[in-house]
Design a binder for these strands. Structure first.
Length: 423
RNA sequence: GGAGAGAUGGCAGAGUGGUCGAAUGCGGUGGUCUUGAAAACCAUUGUACCGAAAGGUACCGGGGGUUCGAAUCCCUCUUUCUCCGCCA
């Protein structure tokens, strides 16, 4: 959610930058400003009425204490008159506030000035490609066939137990999952991220705080009788740890990492895009989250990109990094780098990580602020997060790229975690 | 799941209808004293909104209600603790 301050102080540049999303928000922005003006004047009116009624109430109190009952009754009439003004005003204020929030929550984050313009995936800016593309001197297979042949992932059993998109990992397949989680967590810890193990269910406030609600309600699984949601990413509970918080400047940056299962309805997905591990309803991911001072968030973003890249290097994957164009940029993000790995069996690029700076978009909703030393005022912090990494597509690429005629090789960096080097 | 008792500022803890945005203690910050520190003493110390400022308003777990007036009374939800039951 954008702040009113952002909108009012830089109206033109906000509108212009939002145009990168291929949509003109000037009407909404004007509406926000207009609504906020109504809010202000309504509040001023209400505050004045409340001040008056408070004064009268005190007067009545004094009269009663002095035994002047008849006079008190006269003044009461005056109080009732004001009360009649207060009620509609406070209703009005409540409504205009709701309207304002509604307007604000429908405006996406302002893209960073470096976000490339464009509408589609093809318009994303390629930052770099690295690693070696795997070539085979035999007929290579996609991961779902390899998984079946070596009995490490059973998609059919998942269908039986739950439904499509809930695979069952078996034997070395299950161990590979565990090893990857452990590897990612250990690497994050080396970088100074504190490990968090969060709840997998979140309430509505948390969903609102990081921007999943109300925007992406349909993408989350909801526990109806408890009014809770299954997390689509650990970003939600972990970032919400600091909801409604005022930090000290010296507490920043806050660096957290969390492994969690993630649950996504993926409504609208279909066809070969969802084949095998390419798109699942339940998957595992290690997430990294940072809370920083505004001045340092872009420097931090680059460091996070470098970190995620280091993981892909250690896993010896062929990857590329793209900066998302305005049309591809998520609703809550100001700048996002996507990581894609080449999966040599399917012969296609798979998105394995998204690293984003949300600037104050989340912290405004979260009421996550910090205070500089010696200052009384609070400022909004910046939040950033990234996958480091999501497992399924990494697994897909690993087993496709490292396939041999007789089995699958495990990259060196993982062997100490799997305790085997071949499947 | 059943029964009961709670939820007040960073923490502890008073306050049961009016001058309470809230005593007191601890903690924090600034200062006096000191070679320095400690102790002692003095001052200060919640968040947000409106306002150029003076000042005003809201907030005592959340929401609603009664009343001229609610931290205080009523309803409801959430949550914590104790006991019983169940249980990895």
């Amino acid at each position: 959610m954008l702040t009113l301050q952002q909108i009012k102080e830089n109206k033109e540049s906000v509108i212009n930058l939002l145009k990168k999303r291929n949509y003109d928000f000037s009407e909404q922005i004007e509406k926000v400003i207009e609504t906020d003006d109504i809010r202000k004047s309504t509040q001023t009116d209400l505050d004045n009425c409340l001040a008056e009624s408070k004064l009268i109430a005190k007067e009545i109190g004094t009269l009663y204490r002095n035994g002047k009952h008849t006079e008190a009754i006269t003044v009461k009439k005056k109080a009732l008159e004001i009360k009649e003004k207060i009620k509609p005003l406070s209703n009005e204020l409540k409504e205009v506030k709701i309207k304002l929030i509604k307007l604000l929550t429908n405006i996406p984050n302002i893209p960073h000035s470096s976000v490339p313009s464009g509408k589609l995936e093809k318009d994303n800016e390629l930052i770099r490609t690295a690693g070696v593309k795997q070539e085979f001197n035999f007929k290579s297979l996609p991961h779902w066939e390899l998984a079946k042949r070596f009995n490490i992932i059973d998609f059919g059993l998942g269908n039986k137990i739950t439904g499509a998109g809930f695979p069952v990992y078996k034997g070395k397949g299950a161990k590979l999952q565990r090893a990857l989680i452990n590897f990612f967590l250990c690497e994050a810890e080396k970088q100074g991220y504190e490990e968090i193990m969060p709840p997998l269910l979140i309430n509505e406030e948390s969903g609102f705080g990081t921007g999943q609600l109300p925007d992406k309600e349909g993408q989350m699984y909801k526990i109806i009788n408890e009014n809770l949601y299954l997390i689509p990413t650990a970003e939600v509970p972990v970032t919400n740890l600091y909801r409604n918080t005022i930090l000290k400047q010296e507490d920043l940056p806050i660096k957290m990492t969390a492994y969690s299962s993630c649950f996504r309805r993926e409504a609208g997905s279909y066809g070969k895009e969802v084949r095998g591990l390419n798109r699942l309803h339940q998957f595992d991911k290690v997430e990294i989250v940072q809370i920083t001072e505004p001045e340092k968030s872009y420097e931090t973003l680059e460091k996070m990109v470098d970190y995620v890249e280091s993981l892909l290097k250690k896993l010896e994957l062929h990857y590329r990094i793209v900066k998302l164009c305005g049309g591809d940029l998520g609703f809550t993000s100001a700048l996002t780098y996507d990581f894609e790995v080449y999966s040599a069996g399917q012969k296609k690029w798979l998105e394995v990580s998204s690293v984003s700076n949300f600037e104050t978009f989340q912290t405004n909703r979260l009421k996550l602020r910090y205070r500089k030393k010696g200052e009384k005022r609070t400022r909004q912090a910046h939040t950033l997060n990234g996958s480091a990494l999501a497992l399924p597509r990494i697994v897909a690429a690993l087993i496709e790229n490292n396939q041999t005629k007789t089995g699958i090789k495990i990259p060196k960096a993982l062997v100490e975690f799997t305790n085997f080097d071949f499947i």
